[in-house]
């Protein structure tokens, strides 16, 4: 009987968590009008969530593109199809790697920071302090962070893809001798704006919502001790990564038929 009770406990706590997370999401959306009246709050979060993530995104984008260029060239040259290197690099970046790798890096760089920050605010009772001053902490502290995450993700993913395309171009055209004109022309003729690029952007927006939501919820819901904050940070990265990879499969299945 004990194991049955344990299973029930796990199920109930999971459902309760999901409910709290959904309520928090709604509460954050309610803070939108208040946030629009104080745009500087959003600006500060865009700096810490978006701008400070640019460097890691840029460096990874270039290297992922370069690796794609190398691997793609070796495989494609076996079939004499080096001309399609640009298509391969751009399609894999724009459709999959751009949104997914950006989201994983985002969860590691920005999501963990969000959780730790909010968790510490809770542990040091700053959130309760705000409430004492009749300021809604969900609206004032959490909403700008969520919106900043949602706005940043597509921009970061686009940067990642573009730099990746240039990384692939550097290796393929610069080092391995694929023709410059062919690289771009094949890419332009095979990559479709609405099918490939727009779907990639939609993916990155969804990942932005999920990653910021998980990060904020884990921070807000943590046990307010140093151990609790550390656990929340870990959970943010793990849950975000799993959610991104799982959702990516679902979205890909829905989008690309």
């Amino acid at each position: 009987m004990d194991w049955l009770a344990a299973l029930g406990r796990v199920g109930l706590s999971f459902a309760a968590r999901l409910g709290r997370a959904s309520l928090l999401f709604v509460a954050m959306l309610r803070g939108l009008p208040e946030m629009l009246r104080r745009p500087h709050l959003l600006l500060e979060q865009l700096l810490s969530v978006g701008v400070l993530t640019v460097l890691i995104i840029a460096v990874s984008g270039i290297f992922v593109g370069m690796v794609l260029g190398l691997q793609g060239y070796y495989i494609l040259s076996r079939f004499g199809a080096e001309a399609t290197l640009g298509v391969m690099v751009a399609a894999s970046l724009v459709r999959e790697l751009g949104p997914v790798v950006t989201a994983l890096l985002f969860a590691g760089r920005a999501g963990s920071a969000l959780s730790a920050e909010i968790g510490l605010m809770k542990a040091t009772e700053q959130l309760s302090g705000l409430e004492m001053m009749a300021v809604n902490p969900e609206h004032r502290v959490l909403t700008p962070r969520l919106i900043a995450g949602i706005l940043s993700m597509p921009l970061l993913a686009a940067l990642f893809s573009v730099l990746g395309v240039y990384g692939g171009w550097f290796v393929g055209v610069g080092l391995l001798g694929v023709d410059d004109g062919t690289y771009w022309a094949q890419m332009q003729s095979q990559i479709d704006w609405s099918d490939d690029v727009v779907n990639g952007v939609i993916k990155s927006v969804v990942f932005g919502v999920v990653c910021s939501w998980i990060a904020i919820f884990q921070g807000y819901d943590c046990v307010p001790t140093s151990e609790g904050v550390s656990r929340a940070t870990t959970r943010t990265v793990v849950h975000s990564s799993l959610a991104v990879l799982g959702l990516d499969f679902v979205l890909t299945a829905l989008m690309f038929k």
Partner: peptide, 22 residues
């Protein structure tokens, strides 16, 4: 800084539209 970030992101999207896709 935020303005530069937004501009870079939008330029990247524009680049994906014009240079990478059809």
């Amino acid at each position: 800084l935020v303005g530069a970030f937004m501009a870079a992101g939008l330029v990247a999207l524009f680049f994906l539209a014009m240079q990478v896709s059809n």
